[in-house]
Design a protein around this nucleic acid. Sequence first.
DNA 1: TTGTAAGCGTTATCAG
DNA 2: CTGATAACGCTTACAA
Lengths: 347, 347
Amino acid sequence: MATIKDVAREAGVSVATVSRVFNESAPVKDATRRIVQDVAGRLNYWPNAAARSLITSRTQAIGVLLPDLYGEFYSEILRGMDCAARVAGFHLLVSSSHAHAEELIDALRMMRGRIDSLIVMAPDVDARAAISSMSRDLPIVLIDSGVEPDGCECISIANEAGARALVKHLIGLGHRRIATITGPVRNADAVLRLKGYRAALRAAGLTHGPEHEIRGDFSERSGYEAVARLLALKPRPTAVFAANDYMAIGVLGALSDARVKVPEQIAVVGFDDIAMARYLNPPLTTVHVDANKLGALAVHRLLEAARGGRRDSKRRDVLATNLVVRSSCGSTAANGARTGSARSRGH
Amino acid sequence: MATIKDVAREAGVSVATVSRVFNESAPVKDATRRIVQDVAGRLNYWPNAAARSLITSRTQAIGVLLPDLYGEFYSEILRGMDCAARVAGFHLLVSSSHAHAEELIDALRMMRGRIDSLIVMAPDVDARAAISSMSRDLPIVLIDSGVEPDGCECISIANEAGARALVKHLIGLGHRRIATITGPVRNADAVLRLKGYRAALRAAGLTHGPEHEIRGDFSERSGYEAVARLLALKPRPTAVFAANDYMAIGVLGALSDARVKVPEQIAVVGFDDIAMARYLNPPLTTVHVDANKLGALAVHRLLEAARGGRRDSKRRDVLATNLVVRSSCGSTAANGARTGSARSRGH
DNA sequence: TTGTAAGCGTTATCAG
DNA sequence: CTGATAACGCTTACAA
């Protein structure tokens, strides 16, 4: 592979000049530039990334740390990041499926010196704390729903607002006894969705006991299993809000097995709007999250920080969610209500 | 950030010794090692990746070039790669959503000097040719179903065998008039699935005209639209093989709209076994591809090449596929027949 | 077992 | 506008 020296020699100039041509860091006479470009092209020369980042101490790469997460949400978010990064000439160094805080930290250590900034998606509360402690060394954007930004920028989705809109919609349809199946207790998204559920009930002056909050873990299976508890409640709820779509799928399956009609006997709603939500039987009313946009937004924050250097800590953006009404809630009313504020701070 | 010099000074040894401790490249007295490790830990030192790869000319990173591809298959394949890579201390430099050959080439140029080897998934035939021409400089694994390996290692899925098994299953159920909806003509997977379809019919002594091969493009919409042509055929086919699951979804939708019962009046089968296949109405008979395994396999090939250096060009692995029988084909027979050879060559 | 010193391919800082 | 030359942080002969 040709180096800058080869090009310089062949073109009859100094390495400095070649460097200047490639970086446009200083004026170069047109004729000289042409010769250099010509030679470089012929020699198939391209600056060595390692040498470059050794001296500039910039890598043009963004690290991406993802949790142990399946499915389309994950891939869509990556797509969004990738497109945004590529436009700016940045690369994505991806490390996924980290279940615990330690794994995350480990992966991060391995990335040291390979990235200029970092995007972390860590629903787990512990992991978040650990990561945010490193924001001194590295611009970090946290994607999650944590409560305290702790010095790094945060982007979260409008979990609470989405859940509130969902439950409010159910109430609007006449439901009074609405149960929920929650996600993991340590999961920030889950916590906020529960909060939204409670807020909506409270706002409508409805009371509900703890027995209406059935514990799940975001898995289809936990949704399935929750149904037994749900059906045992007296009086039986007329609607159930599963904190994510996978659990809603489990709920639909269990209700079908129990010969309980949806939405006639029980309305079911989910959260996330995964691709299959519209193909379920009946199609699932849920809350849509634009994962692609989320990813792109995260990258843009980082690029902005790299350029401007505005280390506006404690900044937090909230990505709006959309209520998607399908037939599982027993209504075919207007679709696509926007929920959640676009940005709590920033321009 | 602390450098090797800082550690050396603080520990009272030379930089060479520190390097040896971190690389285990030469024996170091136990006491010395302890001191160095201690100091390094205290200073939070970690070798700078850029400097290291400048001298060793290895980056410990694998490039991943993916097509413009949605959904879980994409994310699963990445998961597979990521896990395999991480175990070996490698990183993944990911660049996705490349629609055309030029974009792919562009992205590859940008990766120059940042990666030790490359995984390319390029269903498009042109892109493949362009990429494989670069295998002189870089160990490359191609994931696709191309016909000619052209000097780089290839991993493909058993498209043809999978399609054959699917159609054979339909024939076994008594179907005689079986249509297919094909994928894009330039798509290697699509071509092989069509080939398998034809082979299965031929093997059973069944004839079929070109009107039974309806052109699609792997999109749900094209599946939907194909149904009009399908239903216009006289005599009407009793079964249809959509070359991927998304088209099968479109087919199910269109048949439902047309009040044609599946599987009673027409059996429908797909390919890929995307997550929602089992939730469709009726659940879709299809062919499962283990994307995670595919990704891991690709990484292992590359690591193997890096270690052994066995540049056994023209090598090709074929990942087996599994027939998944659900009710859309009108049978609830045994599930999970294995199709396709595990490996055509290799140890 | 340890230290010294020569690079690796760039960019940045000076002089000219 | 251009050319020397000193870093950048590390690995690796070669010496001791």
